[in-house]
Design a protein around this nucleic acid. Structure first.
Lengths: 336, 336
DNA sequence: TTGTAAGCGTTATCAA
DNA sequence: TTGATAACGCTTACAA
């Protein structure tokens, strides 16, 4: 199959040579156009499959101007939350005939920039991006490049014309906090994400709003910022001063639970915990973490469909803000 | 930036027109070749970046015959084990200048076939595949297509010339079982994976080997096959007759733990559990599952480097079988 | 119903 | 040091 080191790919020309028809006829026949006689068509199809022909979409793209690929660019696919999103995105994209380039940013702005350039270089038709949000730079660059894109999970409130699919983080943060308050908690530790990330900021905002509504004084020392790529918050978790924790993500929540347990504290008897993302929707674990569920499948499907719609020239897109729910779990109890 | 609906991509020609040089000169300058004077070069580079030029790798591929892309095809990226592998693969690939297409098979042979064809269509330079293994069909097809590929995590013992990176599943299964035996267990339930999957078969083989070595009679009824895409094994788990469980994967192990807990059994006091994959290397969880650790990073890195080596024409590749270790956890105790 | 030729954006060959 | 031209494999407009 190899000739002088280079892989021999079967081309239209090979089928043409074999059948005696022209390249054009082969092309038309293979795409089932109705200007080729049934006879010739089936003869060509047979020969093509005998030779093991597959469309060369590189050449096709060259001619047609699109690649039927999208890029999915996010922080870290090994984070279950992103993994679940990506699964649904790939699935939906594939249903629509699109293939997915996967690129990690590791939440680093430079890597994000490189990822975006890689995507553009490969002529992807569109990009789904969970932005690092260190600054607006990379998204501005994207905008200028005029490539269709959709943000997922995070957005820039001040940027106009940037489409996004997010969940209602303010509401989610609010209901998580409210849920704890209704269980009698008043000293609620917030393990927040970095302030430059919109979802972190808005969950915190929801937290503060709930405190205010329930006339609980906001205490600065009860808000701790956990780095976004951190999986172990042992050094960050205060020894005491709170009866409940609201964590920015399930990853952080589980880690906090682990640290508490190592310190001899019981969950939920001593400390209640609520997380965000509900990764247990995919992962069957013995102990259930109470979590704000963000409908990952819906978010993924919406973002793909939104992107494809933009690719197809639709200018008037509504941003999508998906509802959240409390997924109850044993990590929260009434205060004793 | 858009003209009549189509995105305007900056081409070499645009830079040529702007600077007055020929396309050839631009191309050489941009690639830093030393047959262009420094003056012209820097002038061209400046203009290129002003216009926002990025290489069109589609056109480049067309000409050069390679795409600098690889496909990663596996069962389900939302499975943390695969997610971690994929993260490392993408990271390593990117270091070597390759971009990654992500394709899920959902452990279905037809979807696998479609994924392979999609990959080939997009002219990937190589494929990393965790095969469905319903049959040898798709891998035979791959072999015939002559595209470089490497299997990861699973292999076909009877197929010659198919390169793979796996962990030592027999040894892993053996040491897991031995570990339980040394903790006094003799009635060990094996929650096995489907028999057509090599890793499942070999872990089971290790289990049987260990039983034999320790003179424990093999009991057919203690081996249960859990479907590979199953995340909930509640209907499959026997009520009693065992004091320990060896699960094919951590996913299954955690699920079993959950079911046991729902049934009022304590882990490890009543039942000990050991899993496989050690996904807690990435995920901080309060309760630690004892698990066979399979060095996912090493496996991923090796598979990428192996693939790239094959792409570069290396014919003599050794298959890699990676060692396993027991990652201790509180889910196993001495029998009481 | 089928064939010819141009063109997508790049790189390589050869000439100036 | 720079420029003209062909070629990669495909689709499309037009010709036969």
């Amino acid at each position: 199959m190899r000739e002088n080191g280079k892989r021999r790919i079967v081309r239209l020309k090979d089928i043409a040579d074999k059948t005696g028809y022209s390249i054009n006829t082969i092309s038309h026949a293979l795409r089932g156009m109705n200007d080729i006689s049934e006879e010739t068509k089936s003869y060509i199809l047979k020969t093509a499959s005998e030779l093991g022909y597959v469309t060369n979409s590189i050449a096709q793209s060259m001619r047609l101007g699109y690649t039927k690929t999208i890029a999915v660019i996010l922080g870290d696919i090994s984070n279950p939350h992103f993994a679940i999103l990506t699964k649904e995105i790939e699935n939906t994209a594939s249903k629509h005939g699109y293939s997915v380039f996967l690129l990690n940013t590791n939440e680093d702005e430079d890597q994000e920039e490189r990822a975006l350039k890689t995507a553009i270089q490969h002529n992807v038709d569109g990009i789904i991006l969970c932005p690092v949000q260190r600054s607006e730079k990379n998204v501005r660059f994207l905008q200028k490049s005029d490539i269709p894109f959709v943000l997922i999970g995070r957005y820039f409130p001040e940027m106009d014309g940037v489409r996004y699919t997010i969940c209602n983080d303010v509401r989610g943060g609010y209901s998580a906090t409210e849920y704890l308050i209704r269980h009698g908690h008043r000293k609620i530790l917030m393990l927040s994400g970095p302030a430059h990330i919109s979802s972190a900021k808005e969950r915190l905002q929801g937290y503060r709003q709930a405190l205010a509504d329930y006339r609980i004084e906001y205490d600065d020392s009860l808000v701790i910022e956990v780095p976004i790529m951190e999986t172990d918050c042992s050094t960050l978790l205060p020894e005491d001063g709170y009866t409940a924790i609201f964590a920015f993500s399930d990853i952080v929540a589980w880690s906090a639970w682990k640290v508490l347990r190592e310190r001899g504290k019981r969950v939920p008897e001593d400390i209640s915990i609520i997380g965000f993302d509900h990764i247990q929707s995919r992962l069957s674990l013995p102990y259930s973490l109470c979590s704000v569920s963000s409908y990952k499948a819906k978010m993924s499907i919406t973002s793909v469909e939104m992107l494809i719609s933009i690719i197809n020239g639709n200018k008037e897109m509504e941003n999508i803000i998906i509802d959240t729910d409390i997924a109850k779990g044993e990590s929260v109890s009434f205060i004793s």
